[in-house]
Design a protein around this nucleic acid. Sequence first.
RNA 1: GCGCCCUUAGCUCAGCCGGAUAGAGCAGUGGACUUCUAAUCCACCGGUCGGGGGUUCGAAUCCCUCAGGGCGCGCCA
Length: 573
Amino acid sequence: MTDPQLVLAERVQQALATAFGQEYAAEDPLIRPSQFADYQANVAMSLAKRLRRAPRDVAQEIAANLDLPGTVEVSGPGFLNLRFHDTWIAAEAGALLTDDRLGVARELPSKTVVVDYSAPNAAKEMHVGHLRTTVVGDALVRVQEHLGNRVVRQNHLGDWGTPFGMLIEHLLDIGEEAAVAQLEAGNGNDYYQAARAKFDTDAEFNRRARARVVTLQAEDPETMRLWRIFMDATVRYFNKVYTQLGVTLTDDDIAGESMYNHALAQVCDELQERGIAEISDGALCVFPPGFTGREGAPLPFMIRKSDGGYGYATTDMATMRYRVQDLKADRILYVIGVTQSLHMQMLFASAKMAGWLPDHVSAEHIQIGSVLGSDGKMFKTRAGKSIKLLELLDEAETRAAAVLGDRDYDEATRTEIAHAVGMGAVKYADLSVSHDSEYVFDFDRMLALTGNTGPYLQYATARIRSIFRRGGYDPAASYGPIVITHPAERALALELLGFGPIVAEVGARNEPHRLCAYLFDLASAFTTFFENCPVLKAGSEEERQSRLALSQLTLRVLLQGLDLLGIAAPERM
RNA sequence: GCGCCCUUAGCUCAGCCGGAUAGAGCAGUGGACUUCUAAUCCACCGGUCGGGGGUUCGAAUCCCUCAGGGCGCGCCA
């Protein structure tokens, strides 16, 4: 199976070399999708000036030397309209039938990709934003693994720091059992606020909380026991969210801030000794070049506060070193909110100064945009409180069940479908918009069965399965060969060839929304095919075999694509 | 004050490594159901791509500038 665009690029480059000399063989042929053909090449116009010839002449000359499994025509000021032969498309699509990777190439050489995502903070509210970093991160992880890379998931939990003093004291106040119950139930927010309120108003509690921070830092056994009780209960809640969502994170992927506690002093000492960090106003800071704050003053990346405490900058530096030196990362993806942009830039710059982020390692901040309510502001309830994630997910399933209407399913099947559709809707909404843009959360829109939604794609797979079921065919059996006789068959087959390239692109650019757009286009192409080309009632056995093959391929690509997004597709809807 | 991001159809968003007449979904209007799941489809309507300037054969896309909005900016993480 070959990427159509690559085929065209190679052929056009050959033509360039033949027509204008070997030095043009590596020229980018500027292959782009076209509304007038399958693809177009725009290289003639960009080359015209250098060749001192009219663009149209250049285009003519390329066309004359072009050897294609298709046709070429010069158009407009110098566009090359490229069109494949039907037989070529049919043969390439046919090759997918026996390719269990559906045209997705493995990345060679394989890389080690560390993906930092989800990272809820146990000492802060977990909100819809965490849902998005989790969902997007998990999709990126799935794509990277499918591309053959070694993926190391890192759930950088906020599980350490000064707030844990008051959180532990509050646990003692209300009792371990009550605390665990509250945390497991996902009421960590209420828990935090109760602790906070006492911390702010109750002098005695405040004193205890501060003292508790000290024993925590010293890893006093009893304090550590309490801390573990708190964290275990909290993690059980996180896991509930992950399980319901179908996220691949497990306890093995937890690599929270506490894990780096021991490295912090050494990080600071080393950076100070090497002159990379300096004392400023009593705090130890790195001043990476190019960052300025008020009045042009250099902006500090503070790795030790003046009171000797450490902040997240310190932990992040230790984390970077660990990922590069111990995990042997080739790429590190930080799937973190866009609001952390400046911090990330300073982290990367500081780590480079320290030599902990060498040039051959690529650290990338996958900026996650905020999720907004219908009022265009941060997604909250009317009371201003954050919405609890489990409640939100449950509501998605309830609404999904309602969308299913009165289809004739038994209760268990119904629940199962509602679960898949509800989660698919929520996840697809997070994934189908470019990850760095904000978007407005809207149940009605994400659960719609029409348009670019998860349920629409799931429904598309259910319909295809229905064809096989109705006809008594097995979608896993082999069909074909593929013969193209109708434009809708042609368009569908060509679309199928685009799966491998789009997955590679998503892996390279970390942009799952491109896969969403592709799958939606594919589903649309299938619908057009479905409307125009009877499968079971095809005119001949040959035609039926061909159309079954196209249907089977579409189903497999949709399922594989949805799986890469972390979305399950029910057999029926 | 400094820095980053955003502004594309009534709404929600793509497109932004420059390429032909700027796309999709929803909403609106008009069609298509004795069906391979009509919950799916088709067509139409709808935009001076925030304003202005520049680079270019060609700009939604690159550069400058202005306006409006968001976010961040030494001791929270």
